[in-house]
Computed example of a mutant assay.
Amino acid sequence: MSGFIALWCASAALASALLAVTRPGIVHGLMWLVAALLSLAGCFYALGASFAGAVQVLVYAGAIVAVFVFVVMTVDATPEALAEERARLSGAWRLPAGVVALVALPLLLGPNSTGLEPGPATVPLKALGALLFGPWAIGVEIASALLLAALMGARHLGRRR
């Protein structure tokens, strides 16, 4: 039963993600992004990874989307600016689509098409914390600094003249 729920949540996440990137309204796209992130949290819960599901809801669906909403509210979204942005990014979808195809190809060919054996199914929470705040602490701090720099850059680009 949990496999069916995970599959249903995964299909809902995929549909929501597609709607998030195809909606012309920015706020509607963000709402579909929230739906996709909550659907992924449902997948995690259905597969028994409740900690990952809780992190998905708190960090991504909560904090990150709140930052996105802040950025959207500060960006100049006049029709002229949107038309200029669309013209500038008209062919920019090709590279991300190619990367998605390369990542999805092993998944479509089968679970063992990569020749890699699956890792352990569970990781103790204490071990995860020891990794994040031990040898990976610098990487975690660099990621947070990059997010802060992106937020400041978006604020600078979106300010009114």
Rank of each mutant, 00 (worst) to 15 (best):
M1T: 08
M1Q: 10
S2L: 05
G3M: 09
F4G: 01
W8M: 09
A10N: 07
S11G: 06
S11K: 13
L14S: 08
A15W: 13
L19M: 13
V21M: 15
T22D: 07
R23E: 02
R23F: 00
P24C: 02
G25F: 11
I26R: 15
G29L: 03
G29I: 04
G29V: 04
L30H: 13
L30A: 00
M31L: 10
M31C: 06
W32S: 07
V34N: 14
A35N: 08
A36D: 00
L37Y: 09
L38S: 00
L38Q: 13
S39W: 12
G42H: 09
F44Y: 12
F44L: 01
Y45R: 05
A46S: 13
L47P: 04
L47G: 01
L47V: 03
L47M: 13
A49I: 00
A49D: 08
A52R: 06
Q56T: 02
Q56R: 04
L58P: 01
V59Y: 14
V59M: 10
Y60D: 00
A61L: 05
G62S: 08
A63Y: 07
I64A: 13
V67T: 12
V67L: 14
V71S: 11
V71L: 14
V72K: 15
T74I: 02
T74M: 11
D76F: 05
T78S: 15
P79C: 03
E80Q: 13
A81I: 05
L82V: 08
L82M: 10
E84W: 13
A87E: 15
S90G: 02
S90Y: 08
W93T: 01
W93C: 01
R94V: 11
L95E: 13
L95M: 11
P96H: 15
A97V: 05
G98D: 00
G98I: 00
V100C: 09
A101E: 06
L102K: 05
L102P: 07
V103Y: 14
A104Q: 07
L105H: 02
P106C: 01
L107C: 08
L108G: 03
L109K: 11
L109Q: 07
P111G: 05
P111K: 06
N112G: 05
S113G: 05
L116I: 00
E117N: 04
E117A: 07
E117R: 07
P118R: 09
G119D: 07
A121K: 09
A121C: 00
V123I: 10
K126M: 11
K126N: 06
A127R: 11
L128I: 03
L131M: 11
L132H: 13
L132F: 14
G134L: 05
G134C: 09
W136Q: 15
I138P: 06
E141Q: 04
I142R: 15
A143L: 12
A143W: 14
A145C: 12
A150V: 01
M152W: 10
G153K: 06
G153Q: 12
A154D: 03
R155H: 08
H156M: 10
G158W: 10
R159Y: 05
R160V: 03
R161T: 02
